[in-house]
């Protein structure tokens, strides 16, 4: 197990370098950051040259990348063009997004798995068919549609919740955005656990469990659920990374100052240190989440043992 973890951690290095290099190249290929800094005005050539030198923008691209990476490992993510340290932005943005992700994942697990299990056990019944249709609709509606719709209905028309989130981003304010963020994944979780349950209810070991005289609820919770939820766990684990990075639309709709918001601002203002820095952290989150899922797999399924 230990050797496996070490091997996986080593494998992360090329993935990390590859992704960050790609992001770096793409962001720097977008345009001239110094010109963007000055907005509509033409920059004074002398000042522009000085800024370029300060930010190593006059160096070749590969050298810029190396310098940037070196700085990152010293904990220096550079300065956003508004003068704030990127690390400061992260310190305010990540906790907010983390809370939002947490709310979304909890909703996904509780609602998604419950609906999936019920649907799987009642396979072919009206409830099951209904849920299949509803989840299909949810999957096909883009987040910005469901987001604005729910915001308008619940926040504006009926006034049940505040339509936008305050800068504190308290947990109770994040419930509606959490629902919006979770919606598509929730539909996938429901479908995934439904199929898995429906498949396993006819498995031989479930029949054995019944033949042993175990009551129905024990058969379901002990034998059926445990075996059916492994693919669901994998999905949710991988989804945590996606939710953290993919909250751009949701955070925009509800004006949440999290990672998505900062990334959006960074892209809009051609603010490369912000974009590259945030994405770098997201890449790490992704890699770690995937590693944890793989390790969890071994815990859940004894047949998988990593050497």
């Amino acid at each position: 197990m230990g050797r496996y973890v070490v091997r996986r951690l080593l494998q992360m290095i090329p993935v990390f370098i590859g992704t960050t290099l790609l992001i770096f190249l793409m962001v720097y290929a977008l345009g001239d950051p110094v010109a963007a800094l000055f907005g509509d005005k033409a920059p004074d050539p002398a000042t522009a040259a000085r800024i370029r030198e300060d930010l190593h923008l006059d160096e070749p691209l590969w050298k810029q990348y190396l310098l940037y990476m070196g700085a990152i490992f010293r904990g220096d993510f550079g300065t956003a063009f508004n003068g704030q340290r990127v690390t400061e932005l992260m310190a305010t943005a990540f906790p907010v997004t983390l809370r939002l992700t947490l709310v979304a994942v909890v909703i996904e697990i509780v609602v998604g798995i419950t609906l999936g299990v019920v649907s799987g056990l009642k396979r072919g019944r009206p409830l099951d068919t209904g849920l299949l249709v509803v989840t299909l609709v949810v999957i096909s509606v883009p987040t910005f549609v469901s987001g604005y719709l729910l915001q308008f209905l619940l926040g504006v028309k009926w006034g049940w919740v505040s339509p936008s989130v305050s800068s504190d981003a308290r947990l109770d304010e994040l419930i509606l955005p959490g629902v919006v963020l979770a919606l598509v994944s929730l539909a996938y979780v429901t479908r995934l656990s439904r199929t898995s349950i429906a498949e396993n209810t006819r498995a031989d070991y479930v029949r054995t469990a019944i033949a042993k005289g175990l009551p129905r609820h024990r058969v379901i919770t002990r034998h059926l659920l445990r075996n059916s939820l492994i693919p669901v766990v994998t999905f949710i684990g991988a989804d945590v990374g996606a939710l953290m990075g993919g909250a751009i639309v949701t955070e925009r709709i509800f004006n949440i100052h999290g990672v998505g918001y900062q990334l959006y601002q960074g892209i809009l203002r051609n603010n490369s240190p912000t974009v590259v820095g945030f994405v770098t952290i997201l890449v790490i989150v992704f890699l770690v989440a995937n590693l944890l899922v793989d390790l969890l797999y071994a815990v859940l399924d004894p047949r998988i043992r990593y050497a």
């Binding site: 498995a203 031989d204 070991y205 029949r207 054995t208 469990a209 033949a211 075996n227 004894p302």
Partner: peptide, 14 residues
């Protein structure tokens, strides 16, 4: 009690 045909699938792997 019942003894099933295929003990690999009849026993829970987990």
């Amino acid at each position: 009690a019942m003894i099933f045909q295929d003990p690999l699938t009849a026993l829970s792997p987990y």
